[in-house]
């Protein structure tokens, strides 16, 4: 079974079909505005709502839930620490089990939580709705070195392959009497016999693959083309300009408000 390091979910809505660059621009705009330009909680909250709507529309929201669950631990600890111990705490808000939470700390914790969720959801939108290869291809088209692009995209498939090779190596070494289970010392001793073959055979494979790539024109000097040359759709362009306009407006708003 082929495995790819990717969280992409193929549900084929317009969110999936968007130019990956638009989604990258969205992350940039969301972070810039809610962190620096207009650092108000309601702005951050607005972006969270926007991201959630897009994720829901793209039918990938279910995949975000585990991510949220994981970050929940961090968020709770932020609330507890800031609510109880922030230096500027003055106004008591609520008491639970004899512990007093302060209003200042809770509000600051809220700001932090909003920012964490803001970044998390904006990235989730990119990662869950974009094929890694599409993202890399659009970066290559915009000047990323094709060699670096290749390294990125092949790593997504080669790393899982290497992990499954570890299983066969483990079998081979256990067959020669190597104990791989037991005390820490036993496990440490087993490390080299397990990792050695992985490293050596990936070096061998890399050389073989390098030759296979060369004979398929990898180093050709002319201009590269792309099988799926995606034309920017009107929607892509509209959204791209809309995001830029929002960015400019927020800067203007900043000066008006100050």
């Amino acid at each position: 079974m082929a495995r790819v390091l990717s969280l992409y979910v193929e549900t084929n809505t317009f969110v999936q079909r968007l130019d990956p660059m638009v989604k990258l621009l969205y992350i940039l705009v969301a972070v810039l505005i809610s962190f620096i330009i207009l650092p108000f909680r309601w702005v951050g909250a607005a972006f969270i709502v926007l991201s959630c709507l897009a994720l829901l529309y793209a039918r990938v929201f279910a995949r975000v839930v585990p991510l949220l669950g994981f970050s929940f631990l961090i968020l709770v600890s932020i609330v507890i620490i800031q609510g109880l111990f922030m230096p500027g705490n003055k106004t008591p808000a609520i008491s639970i089990f004899g512990l007093t939470f302060y209003k200042e700390g809770l509000l600051y914790a809220l700001t932090l939580c909003i920012r964490v969720l803001d970044v998390l959801l904006a990235f989730a939108l990119l990662v869950l709705t974009t094929r890694p290869s599409d993202l890399i291809q659009s970066l290559v088209k915009r000047g990323l070195s094709p060699r670096f692009g290749y390294v990125l995209s092949s790593a997504l498939q080669v790393i899982p392959q290497m992990m499954s090779q570890v299983d066969s190596i483990m079998d081979a070494q256990r067959s020669r009497g190597l104990e791989t289970e037991g005390s820490l010392w036993v496990r440490l001793k087993a490390f080299l016999p397990l990792i050695g073959p992985v490293v050596m055979s990936s070096l061998l494979e890399t050389r073989e693959r390098a030759m296979a790539l060369e004979v398929r024109g990898f180093s050709a000097s002319g201009k590269k083309t792309f099988l799926y040359e995606r034309e920017s759709s009107t929607l892509d362009r509209v959204l791209q300009w809309a995001l830029i306009v929002v960015l400019i407006l927020s800067v203007v708003l900043r000066f008006v408000l100050v």
């Binding site: 790819v4 094929r131 290869s133 290749y150 995209s153 092949s154 498939q157 080669v158 392959q161 494979e205 073989e208 693959r209 296979a212 790539l213 398929r216 024109g217 990898f218 050709a220 002319g222 201009k223 590269k224 083309t225 792309f226 099988l227 799926y228 040359e229």
Partner: peptide, 29 residues
């Protein structure tokens, strides 16, 4: 195994790899 580029997700795209490098137009590809 080592002749698969590992950079492509489908058989179809895999075959395209060499053609992309040599700069062929989409219809020809």
């Amino acid at each position: 195994f080592t002749q698969i580029t590992a950079a492509k997700l489908t058989v179809y795209e895999e075959v395209a790899f060499g053609l992309e490098n040599l700069g062929f137009q989409r219809e020809e590809m």
